[in-house]
Amino acid sequence: MIIKILGSGCKKCGALAENAKVAAQTEGINAEIEKVTDVVAIASYGIMSTPGLVIDEKVVSTGRVLTASEISPLLKEASA
């Protein structure tokens, strides 16, 4: 599974990446976390507010730092 964090390098993106990592570990999912920082690349996902969370190329959240427990169900859904 590939998790992408969309955001131009703000503190929130770091926090979101950290939470995603924790969630993946809790769920026992082998995920690769990638940060996308280029604004054009970010916009090519169609999102306007960062940070954005993308799981396997699908946008699941924008404009918020989700907690690990909020990310877990999204990961489960994506791996199902």
Binding site: A43, Y45, G46, I47, V59, T62, G63
Partner: peptide, 17 residues
Amino acid sequence: AFVYQSPVSDHDNDGTI
């Protein structure tokens, strides 16, 4: 040109905040 081809994501967290 790529601007017009960009996907539109209507993902909106507003209701859940």
